[in-house]
Design a protein around this nucleic acid. Sequence first.
DNA 1: ACGAAGCTTGCATGAACATGTATCTTGTTG
DNA 2: CAACAAGATACATGTTCATGCAAGCTTCGT
Lengths: 148, 148
Amino acid sequence: MTTTSYTPAAASDQAMWGKVLALHAHVERRLTQALQRKHGIGLSEFRALECLVHAKAGELRMQELADKVGLGQSSVTRLVGRLFAAGFAFRDLCPGDKRGVYAVITDEGKERYADARGTYSEVLSAALNTAGATPELAGTVQALRSAH
Amino acid sequence: MTTTSYTPAAASDQAMWGKVLALHAHVERRLTQALQRKHGIGLSEFRALECLVHAKAGELRMQELADKVGLGQSSVTRLVGRLFAAGFAFRDLCPGDKRGVYAVITDEGKERYADARGTYSEVLSAALNTAGATPELAGTVQALRSAH
DNA sequence: ACGAAGCTTGCATGAACATGTATCTTGTTG
DNA sequence: CAACAAGATACATGTTCATGCAAGCTTCGT
């Protein structure tokens, strides 16, 4: 009838997604502020460093990094540019394919990540706790945590 | 228990939040593209219209709107400016408090919202389904839907 | 009670920044 | 050479932070 014939869970999906959005906004805002204030880096930078630290040899192709941090390809070009400007990473040519570029983390980048990691973890759990303490989001947080 | 010195659930919180981020990025991207392509409005505009439609008299104070859509105060000033430029809303002075401003939805705004509402609902459910079909996110989506 | 000083609140504006889309450059491959 | 792939760049948008301004509120001296 409507565009698709019949979408049974659409209404509850919408209510559910509204809570996810509220939770996401709440948590991400706190993480952003804490990382910026205590360590001088943004959330995308932190997550990129995290990916690089855990990657083999501390390096990733640009497109791989884009997928892992959930950004577009061009955003990652500039993100790595920022990491380079801050001394946390550099670009390296891919030996086999001269089109390819590796983003490589530096020792300084590893240190900054190690510094910020604790903050991230603490603030994340704290933000989830405060969100879970509100009646509106309690069920959502609990469901996510139970599911692991 | 120990919120500060020792956070037992921190590690799993981090893993869990990574999945929420992936899900959020996936779904929001699809919603953004669908609304922009089919109805020529952004996600924030759609959500603002939704808040206004459901608000008493179709009007909200700027700060109320900011809270509901999860944006900062200045972002909402500009968001309502865009809605005004598109003919979907206008500003009205608050009678009691001359500092206050109401954002009021227009008939045209209500129509555009009614048009886009179906798209939003369908794309949301579809995006949740595709995400839930991946082994990585299946558990997360299921947990959220069960919790409703 | 009056009223002015000082703080707070609600919104607007300008500059900086991050992101997405489209396009361009360069390199690879058939 | 044609077709395609990986990144870089140009441009337009949207978001935030810091700031500014105007209106309400509070307090205190007279």
